[in-house]
Amino acid sequence: PDQELVDHISGNLESVDAEMDFTSITTASSGPTRVVCTKLVLANGQNSVLVIGSSDRYSANAIQTVATVLLLIFPIGCVSISVAAWLVAGLATRPIEQVQHFAENLDPRKLMTDIDLEGDGAEIESLRQELRRAMQRIEKAYEEQARVLANISHEVKTPISVVQTEAQVLMMKKPSPDEYRSFVKSTSEEMQRLGSMVESFLLLTRVQKNDAKVRQKVISTDDLVLESYEQCQSMARQYHVVLNISLNAGEREPKVLGNADLLCTLVNNLVRNAIRFTPEQESVELYSGVDDKTVIIGVRDHGPGITESLLPRLFEPFTQASSERRKGRGTGLGLQIAKGIAELHGGDIVVRNLDVGCEFEVRLPMAEHD
């Protein structure tokens, strides 16, 4: 037997108890050995220790083999997983790359070019449909922008053409003092209209950029209605229209949180629009009220009403009724500005035809605190 193994076992016999004691011992000659020791009491009462040993080379070789295999497989597995992840990531990001390529080559003249995304999954189809809807919205906005620019060009050109034509007529003859005065008056009116249009453009841009929320305070809508009533009286007299006012009669005073100048512009635009469409000697009613937690400012006229074909695009820029249905010329931006201001304050404008005339109703959230 291996003397080194015997010596090791003999030196540790005292630590062996009644239970089995398993241990592994490695010696130079025997190599790894698995040893089991247990105490026995012989028939003569003598205490003995039973020692059974077996070579553990097979287990050691198996462990070594497994370790070697793992060392070889681990880097191969890492490389395989990395390659698989790269391929999967490439397939997953392919639609994104296609969208990026599509966006880089987007042409405003070909907005409805179909987006060809590879793949047939539900997610790809959902992305494809959403991109198509987005392109439709962009195309609509682009067409609206082109239409507005065309209208702006026309509206700006009109007063310039009027002044230029009258000036050319005056240059062709020796004008009288009355003709000079008429020319100056006409020029002044056209320049005022042009200036009003420029101011409307600036205000519309400001409203659309939500640039008006910086100075807000709690405002009494009765005060707004009174201020608008006073500011529009001159125009009402000019068009021979009676402007009436009716303030809230409830217990609660209607108040809103907002920009006083913009809200006054909103009401003025609606009142002046109503005056233009109301026949002489008829009336326009301006009123305020409360509906639960909503403040109401209404304008009711006795004009011809709004044609059904015009209602869906009433708040679009440069939308105006035919000249025979109105008096005077506006900028065509007043209603869009009014609606933009209402939405800026968390409200809306509701319009409806009546038996005689029509009614615009501004609905704004009531201020909770002063």
Rank of each mutant, 00 (worst) to 15 (best):
P1F: 06
E4F: 02
D7W: 01
I9P: 03
S10A: 14
G11E: 12
S15F: 14
S15D: 15
S15A: 15
A18N: 15
M20C: 04
F22V: 00
S24C: 11
S24E: 15
I25W: 07
A28V: 06
P32E: 06
P32Y: 10
P32A: 11
A43V: 00
G45E: 10
S48G: 14
V51L: 10
V51C: 15
S55Y: 10
S55K: 07
Y58L: 13
S59C: 05
A60L: 04
A62W: 00
I63T: 15
T65P: 05
T65I: 13
T68A: 07
L70F: 02
I73L: 04
I76C: 10
S80E: 03
I81D: 13
I81P: 10
S82I: 02
A85D: 14
A89G: 12
E97I: 09
V99T: 00
Q100P: 04
Q100A: 12
Q100L: 03
H101E: 15
F102N: 01
E118L: 11
G119P: 11
D120G: 05
G121R: 00
I124G: 01
S126W: 08
R132T: 06
R133V: 02
A134Q: 12
I138S: 11
E139T: 13
K140T: 11
A141C: 12
Y142M: 15
Y142L: 13
Q145G: 13
R147M: 15
L149G: 14
L149M: 14
A150H: 10
N151K: 14
I152F: 08
H154V: 06
S161H: 10
S161C: 06
Q164K: 06
E166P: 07
E166M: 11
A167R: 14
L170K: 03
E179N: 07
E179V: 07
S186D: 06
M191P: 03
R193K: 11
R193A: 14
G195S: 08
T205Q: 15
V207Q: 12
V207R: 06
K217N: 05
K217I: 05
I219N: 05
S220R: 09
S220A: 10
S220I: 02
L226K: 10
Y229G: 14
C232S: 12
V242W: 12
G250L: 04
R252T: 00
R252W: 00
E253L: 11
P254A: 10
V256Y: 02
N259M: 13
D261Y: 05
V267W: 04
V267S: 04
N268W: 01
V271M: 01
R272V: 01
I275D: 06
F277N: 04
E280D: 09
E282V: 01
V284M: 14
S288R: 08
G289W: 01
T294Y: 07
T294A: 08
T294K: 08
G305T: 13
I306M: 13
E308W: 04
S309P: 09
L310F: 10
P317T: 04
F318I: 08
A321I: 14
S322L: 15
E324W: 13
R325N: 10
K327I: 06
K327R: 14
T331W: 13
T331L: 09
G332K: 07
G332P: 03
L333E: 11
L335S: 07
A338N: 04
A338D: 03
K339H: 01
K339T: 00
G340N: 11
G340H: 11
A342D: 01
H345I: 01
G347N: 05
R352H: 03
L354K: 15
L354F: 09
V356H: 14
F360Y: 00
P365N: 12
P365T: 12
P365L: 02
H369L: 07
